[in-house]
Simulated scan of single mutants.
Amino acid sequence: MKECHQVTEIGSCTDKNKAGPECLQCEEGCSKSRPPGCPHPCVLPCHPGECPPCVQMLRIKCHCKITSLYVECRKMTTADINEKNLLSCCKNQCPKELPCGHRCKEMCHPGECPFNCNQKVKLRCPCKRIKKELQCNKVRENQISIECDTTCKEMKRKASEIKEAEAKAALEEEKRRQQAELEAFENRLKGRRKKNKKRDEVAVELTLWQKYKYYLLPACAVVVVVFAWYIAHGVD
C-alpha cells in the first residue's frame, strides 16, 4: 500500500505508513512476491499482511509421463522432495521395461527403475527334464542353476542306446536297398546283352544275304530250270 500524503493518528498507533481516514482505497493489484514455484498472481487487490495461500490447480505429468494430475499450487510449492514425489505419483504400476524384459513392478516413481525383478521364470536342467520356477534376478545373477540328476543321466544313456540301434538298423536297411538295386541293375544288363546278341545274329544273316543275293538268285534260277527240265524229260 502506498504511503499517504497525511496520516491521522488512530488511537495510540504512531505508524506513519498506515492509512488514515484521509487516504483513498488503493486500486492496484497486489505486487508482493509470490512463493517459489507459484506462477499465479495473488487473487486479492492491494492488501496489508501476507497473501492467502494459492489454491489454483496445477496440471502436471506423473513420473510415468502418461497420466495428467491436478494438484493445488500451495501443496506443490510448500512440499519437500518426498512430498513432491508423492504428489506426482499416479498410483499406477510403472510401465517401463527392465533389462531382463519384464515390466517394472514398482508403483509410478521418479528416476531409474530398481533392478530387483522378482518375476518368476522357468529354469530347466540341461536335458530339459527337471523344471523349476525361480526369481528372475537370482537367475540373471547366476546364483541358481539346476543340474541333471541320476534319473536324467539314465534316461540320456537309454536314449543314446536307442539312437545307436536306430542308426545301425538304418545302415543295414540302406545296405539291403543298395544290394537290391545292384542285383536289379545286373539283371537288366544281362537282358540287354541277350537282346543285343540276337540283334547281331540277325544283322549278320541279313548282311550275308544282301551281300550274295545277286549271285545266289541266278544260280537258284538255273537250278530250278534244270530241275524242271529233268522232271519233264524223265517223265517222257
Rank of each mutant, 00 (worst) to 15 (best):
E3V: 14
H5T: 11
T8G: 09
T8V: 10
E9P: 14
S12D: 15
K18W: 13
A19K: 11
G29L: 13
S31K: 15
K32L: 10
K32A: 09
V43E: 06
L44A: 11
L44Y: 07
R59C: 06
K61N: 10
H63P: 02
E72G: 14
E72W: 00
E72I: 04
C73Q: 02
T77F: 00
T77Q: 05
D80R: 02
I81L: 10
I81W: 11
N82W: 15
E83G: 04
N85S: 04
C90L: 05
P95L: 05
L98R: 07
C100T: 03
H102A: 04
C104T: 03
H109C: 01
G111I: 00
P114Y: 01
N118Q: 08
R124A: 14
R124N: 12
P126F: 03
K128V: 09
K128Q: 13
R129I: 00
I130D: 07
Q135I: 03
Q135T: 06
N137L: 00
V139M: 04
E141Q: 13
S145F: 13
E147H: 11
T150V: 13
M155Q: 14
A167Y: 00
A167F: 00
E174L: 12
R177E: 12
Q178C: 09
L182H: 08
E183L: 07
E183T: 06
E186G: 07
E186P: 06
E186V: 06
N187L: 09
K190G: 00
G191H: 15
R193S: 00
K195C: 02
K197P: 00
D200Q: 12
K213Q: 09
A219N: 11
A221S: 10
V223K: 11
V224G: 03
V224E: 10
V226P: 03
F227W: 13
I231L: 13
A232D: 06
